[in-house]
Computed example of a mutant assay.
Amino acid sequence: MKLACIVHDQVNLVLLPLLGALTVAGLTGHAAPELVTHVFLAYVLADLVWVAAQPEAVPSLPGFILLHHTVTAALLVIPLRFGGRFHTYTCLDGLVELNTFFLIARRQWRGLRQPLSIAYWVTFVPLRLVLYPALVPVFLAEMRAESASWLETLVCVGSQVILTAFNVLMLVLSVLNWRKRHAKPQDGKQQAEGEAAKGPTAAKLLHAGVGVAAAGVGGVQRATVTLRARTA
């Protein structure tokens, strides 16, 4: 791994837990949600400039990272424009950085790869594959309630759709990488020992994440209704 990538990862291993904690604080009333929006926008723009100036700072696909950050920055303009509960949606979307932390941590802390992989998959499904698509119709309803212009609606809803698609791409790449790592031919006793040593597979971890996600779908819907009631 290149030094630039290691440095970028180490910086994010410090910043991402702080961002994750800030989003939780914003959702629980221990931090102003509008502060979360401003901090996240500053982080995304700073990382956008970093990756643009030094593409080797990420292990692969710097173009996709730049696209992701550009779309995220566009989405963060919406709470700055409309304020109120839209800042709380920043906190909800921002929870995904906890999963990003596990992604980077398992890459850098090889000795803890197995427990970090479990944490990665268990948080991946509810945050990236359930919460993000669940917020698409919520955002559409909110923009209609605000009588937003078609362009503002397109930026808000379209950005969330693109970020959801990015999460699906991450799933595909993660599964392909897992299959590549375990594709080495083995025979007889070596194969049996290898299977015993693998521990939880990606499929099992995904299944565990789905269990967590099932409970989360209703939670997203209830939280949205409560949020609307409080701000009505």
Score class of each variant (00 low, 15 high):
5 C>I: 02
5 C>G: 08
10 Q>F: 12
10 Q>W: 14
11 V>M: 10
15 L>G: 04
22 L>P: 00
22 L>K: 02
25 A>Q: 06
27 L>Q: 09
28 T>L: 12
34 E>L: 06
40 F>V: 01
44 V>Y: 06
45 L>E: 04
45 L>V: 14
49 V>E: 07
53 A>N: 05
56 E>V: 10
57 A>P: 02
61 L>Q: 14
61 L>A: 15
65 I>W: 12
72 T>Q: 09
74 A>N: 08
77 V>H: 12
77 V>N: 08
78 I>L: 08
78 I>E: 04
79 P>S: 06
85 R>A: 10
91 C>R: 01
94 G>T: 03
105 A>F: 04
107 R>S: 13
110 R>M: 11
120 Y>M: 05
123 T>V: 04
123 T>W: 03
132 Y>A: 15
136 V>P: 02
138 V>C: 07
141 A>V: 10
144 R>M: 11
149 S>Y: 11
149 S>T: 15
150 W>P: 01
152 E>V: 07
159 S>N: 07
159 S>W: 02
160 Q>G: 01
160 Q>W: 02
163 L>N: 03
163 L>C: 03
167 N>F: 00
169 L>Q: 14
169 L>P: 02
170 M>Q: 15
173 L>G: 12
175 V>P: 03
179 R>C: 11
183 A>T: 03
183 A>D: 14
189 K>L: 10
194 G>D: 10
200 P>N: 06
204 K>C: 10
205 L>C: 07
206 L>E: 01
209 G>W: 00
210 V>A: 11
211 G>T: 03
212 V>K: 00
213 A>M: 02
216 G>I: 04
221 Q>H: 10
227 L>M: 15
227 L>V: 09
229 A>V: 07
